[in-house]
Design a protein around this nucleic acid. Structure first.
Length: 416
RNA sequence: GUGAGUGUAGCUCAAUGGUAGAGUAUCAGACUGUGGAUCUGACCGCUGCGGGUUCAAGUCCCGUCACUCACCCCA
């Protein structure tokens, strides 16, 4: 074995798991196409500043988890830890706000975070996500959330929980944060070191602390829901109403906090009980200020990102539909020319065909056909060559018929 | 970054401190016109790596790396 291994937190994906990935990717394209989302592909690395400005320099992601490096010209570049900032950058840079309608994007691709790997968490991981620009209506929030939950349902993933909150906006959040800081300050002596540090940076994250003492204490803290401005409160009420139109059940979590700073108003997260500690399948929300902050027009936006590895973990029972394979068995190496030509003709007809060139006896070849789960084995040996026929054995029923080569195509059309 | 568990054949796993094994997979034969079964044989290893203790280490000790899970954080 080579002593060079895949870097920590990365992995190789191949059959049979790769079938699930291909299935998932095509499901994403088909499903979100129906909402007029169009694919966007952005670079895997960006100027580091895009993320520190977009995601927020105080966030865990930016402070500890970025793969940042200098290129040969001394530019600071970063492997993208998420894709929303890039999509916004791309929209601004290409003037998509002026040219594209509707402004709806989906993406699929690798993201990178320098985290310690564990179940459902990798350093290179796949996300797909959607972004809607230039629509500030609460109904589009409901549509995005519906399209997140409904997609999982269509994949057969139903044991999930949707948590919902509003995190306010620049009009009401600062005042609330002051209130929260004051409350936390008063209890600071009882909070853990970690939480004490959060008071000044992002006190909302105190709600995330799983230490018993901290969560007990923070339960008494004011929650944003009671301090939303009327615009945010109205918006949130309308989102909830529209969700009920679409029969989307949700759990109000007034302490739901997202890890990225750009969220405003609606924030949501879908979790699963089957995942272990890393239980978030997807998360998202509205980010009405980000586009302006990154130099674009003052434009509302909403989206979510989903962890594909975590979705794949829920597809365990998905039976990969394997192609029906034809195996051409050659009775003697002297007929290999016929066998290769037959195989090629069949491939051009669209069948997956395999054959063995090792000159093994028919028994070995049938064994091989069995191993690769061939649907039919086509025998070409002396009898068949002489009579211009081929013997076709149905591997499941064990029935075998000898048919003229000229009729093979028609026979396969009927029996394949 | 912190903690715990695990590292032996391609895969799944054995081996009271005393000659590294089995199942499975692969290849060949029994069986040169027919798969799943059976039997026989072959192949497969610096026991993660580096030190230490010992007459002797896969086994005990230290370090290190990797994987897994959890903390943290999130998707």
């Amino acid at each position: 074995m080579s002593d060079i291994k895949a870097p920590k937190g990365t992995r190789d994906i191949f059959a049979p798991e790769i079938h699930k990935w291909q299935y998932l990717e095509s499901a994403i394209r088909a499903y979100y196409g129906k909402y007029l989302y169009q694919e966007i592909r952005t670079p895997v690395f960006e100027h580091s500043e895009l993320f520190s400005r977009g995601i927020g320099s105080e966030t865990e992601v930016v402070q500890k988890e970025m793969y940042t490096f200098k290129d040969k010209a001394g530019r600071s570049l970063t492997l993208r830890p998420e894709n929303t900032a890039s999509v916004v950058r791309a929209a601004i840079e290409n003037n998509l706000f002026e040219t594209l309608a509707p402004l709806r994007f989906y993406y699929i691709g690798p993201m990178f975070r320098y985290d310690k790997p564990q179940k459902g968490r990798y350093r290179q991981f796949q996300q797909f996500g959607i972004e809607v620009f230039a629509d500030d209506s609460p109904q589009v929030d409901a549509e995005v959330i519906f399209a997140a939950v409904d997609f999982l349902k269509k994949l057969g993933i139903e044991q999930v929980q949707l948590e919902l909150n509003s995190v306010g906006c620049p009009n009401c959040r600062p005042a609330y944060l002051q209130l929260l800081r004051r409350a936390a300050q008063a209890e600071a002596h009882r909070l853990c070191d970690d939480c004490r540090r959060k008071i000044d940076g992002n006190p909302l994250r105190i709600f995330d602390c799983k230490q018993h003492a901290c969560s007990e204490i923070s339960r008494g803290f004011p929650v944003i829901g009671d301090h939303l401005c009327s615009e945010c409160a109205d918006h949130f009420a309308a989102v909830r109403e529209a969700l009920s139109w679409m029969n989307v059940p949700f759990l109000l979590n007034p302490r739901l906090v997202r890890g990225l700073d750009y969220y405003t108003k609606t924030a949501f997260e879908v979790t699963s009980g089957q995942l272990g500690a890393q239980n978030a399948l997807l998360g998202g929300g509205r980010y009405d200020s980000l586009i302006r902050e990154l130099g674009g027009p003052d434009t509302a936006a909403i989206g979510f990102a989903a962890g594909m590895e975590r979705i794949i973990l829920h597809l365990e029972h998905l039976e990969a539909s394997r192609p029906r394979i034809l195996f051409v068995a050659c009775g003697d190496p002297q007929w290999l020319a016929h066998a290769m030509q037959l195989a090629q003709v069949l491939r051009e007809e669209g069948y997956p065909v395999h054959l063995d060139y090792q000159g093994r006896n028919l028994k070995k070849q049938f064994k091989k056909a069995d191993r690769i789960a061939a649907a039919f084995t086509l025998v070409l040996a002396e009898d068949e060559i002489r009579s211009g026929t081929v013997s076709v054995k149905d591997m499941a029923s064990q029935e075998q018929v000898k048919i003229p080569l000229k009729e093979l195509n028609a026979w396969l059309k009927k029996n394949y």
